[in-house]
Design a protein around this nucleic acid. Structure first.
Lengths: 330, 330
DNA sequence: GCGGGGACCTTACGCGCGTTAGTTCCGGAT
DNA sequence: ATCCGGAACTAACGCGCGTAAGGTCCCCGC
């Protein structure tokens, strides 16, 4: 900036004003133009650290996440980053592996960079407890929530997703609809099951507990075995709602092995919309999408609003819908 | 730091010295201890921007990548970050979507943060051309290379991977080994095919062009169709090497539909080691892993070494091995 | 002729820190 | 008594920038 000032023959302040559009009509259009040209010619590039130091705001937001060890959520990062740039902020990303010590260290590093706000994104929908230093700065939770409700959080509408999936099957004419849930006692499992039940209830379909199974989600065998059992039932289901795309992957195998075809004999709906699975299964899997991108953008939006207003964020839980993605398995 | 100095009754300089371990025997152990305690008590947290400004080095590295739109490579990010922290640097991650304009803007943002070095990681193995500003700072390419060879690059050993996969099948006793390659005219396809051929040659197996197919990789249908064709051959292969795990996914379907079982009738080896597919297929897929994590760490290592030495990096291409991951499909 | 009020700039300070070039003090040797 | 040297500090500057508080000049109205 000094070089520009010298070249144009004005003070550094004048340069600062025009480069920040801070001229309250106080720099003539002519010199303004000359300053802009000189900046261009000299290849001026602002020094973020100096700016942060002087302005007392870093323009940085922090995102800490364990997505790397989870199959999800790169989309959350993308969503958060897109929105951050839109707000003129730079998003600092710290990938952890779930190790709490490393997580604390990561947050500390972010705070040393003087992030103005923090987003904590979990790999799966669950309760978390953040280290105390996370409260040094506005923080919002994404895809998780805290035990004592002191922090705002953004979570997917698991129940709504389970409902959409089941209703979609019902609207396609199915009445006997199996449900292979993921591990019980998880937030996702509870919500999806509730949605399944509500949809059946809405349609006046008698629930049959025999049609509800749960599966280990850590390999495709769980889905395969549960689906096999379902298909061996005397009055077998004509449709299966799988609590996970990975479970659906196993279910596909079971259905095919039983000599049945998808979707004519058995319809299948998954959950998660993992492109790598859903789009590559044959036939392509109709599934419910977790709104990762939107959860990311909303998180940043909430931070941005709070920062602009200078107010803390109300510790509410925001729920984002899980849209059905129709492909070819129903 | 001022507060600490005042509380201990020394100058800020003394505080700076001990907090940076810069005391060349010039601070007595006693005051040193008192300063450390005061820092702890006051909850001192260094201000990265101020430090960067004064020290004239940001301690930041930049990573720009399009991984978000690609199914790969979150591991590259993790590897790069792990190594960065190890070197006491913070890794700034900029996720792009392949749009060159956005990519340029991302690099510019990173340069404004005064990153000391840059890593460009591609979603798939290919040639890239970086915007000129990328040369303002030491840069290394990961999973890609530049046309005119002006930049150092780190790439996977596709040929070696193809060789391992094929040799593994040969060692399991197979002689008629089909190969379903991904789109030709890609670096990956060329390398993997060359490895396949060399392994056959090493073992004295007569190559049969009829066994080599290529497939559209954008859905599982390509793999399914190519595998079906292979299995309908009069002298059908007893093993299939798939250029991609996604292709293998389609091949699994074809094999099962032909009433054959894996691995007893037909063995399968994939490529990419995408956990979501390989670990969830039934049986689990033996495949070749792309060394994403190591490419990430090596990239940062090279940058770190160059930065420490104050020398530019020799624009060489470093090749990283692709290890075979044995599961249950051979 | 003079005060007033813009328009257009500038002076000067400080953000939190690293670092160079001292300064002070004290004990031992001459 | 004086000198010297090392141990243990400190004063002061500058990194690149934002910004509050002044200038200076000229035109306009009385």
């Amino acid at each position: 900036m000094g070089d520009i000032a010298q070249r144009v023959g004005v003070s550094r302040t004048a340069v600062s004003f025009v480069l920040n559009n801070r001229d309250d009509g106080s720099v003539s259009p002519a010199t303004r133009e000359r300053i802009l040209r000189a900046a261009e010619d000299l290849g001026y590039r602002p020094h973020a650290a100096a700016r942060a130091l002087a302005a007392q705001r870093s323009g940085l937001l922090g995102l800490v996440t364990e997505i790397v060890t989870s199959p999800f959520g790169m989309e959350t990062v993308k969503g958060a980053q897109d929105r951050s740039w839109q707000e003129g902020k730079f998003l600092l990303i710290a990938a952890t592996d779930g190790n709490p010590g490393l997580e604390r260290a990561a947050i500390e590093k972010l705070l040393e960079q003087r992030v103005e706000g923090l987003i904590y994104a979990s790999g799966f929908h669950r309760e978390v407890t953040l280290p105390p230093i996370a409260f040094d700065v506005p923080t919002v939770l994404v895809h998780c929530f805290d035990a004592d409700g002191r922090l705002p959080s953004i979570v997917p509408d698991e129940e709504g997703g389970g409902h959409s999936a089941t209703r979609h099957l019902i609207e396609a004419g199915h009445r006997r609809i199996g449900f292979i849930n993921l591990e019980p006692d998880t937030t996702a499992a509870r919500g999806r099951l509730a949605g399944y039940r509500r949809a059946l209830d809405d349609a006046g379909v008698e629930p049959d507990d025999d049609l509800v199974r749960s599966s280990d989600d850590s390999s495709a065998d769980g889905g395969y075995l549960a689906a096999s059992a379902l298909l061996s039932l005397p009055d077998r289901p004509t449709a299966i709602f799988c609590g996970t795309d990975r479970i659906a992957m196993g279910a596909y195998d079971a259905i095919k092995e039983h000599g049945l075809s998808i979707p004519s004999d058995v319809a299948v709906v998954g959950f998660d919309n993992q492109e790598l699975i859903a789009a590559y299964l044959r036939p392509k899997l109709t599934t419910v999408a977790l709104p990762f991108h939107e959860m990311g953008t909303r998180g940043v939006e909430m931070l941005g609003a709070a920062l602009a207003a200078g107010q803390p964020i109300a510790p509410e839980q925001v729920t984002i819908g899980c849209p059905l993605v129709e492909r070819s398995s129903v």
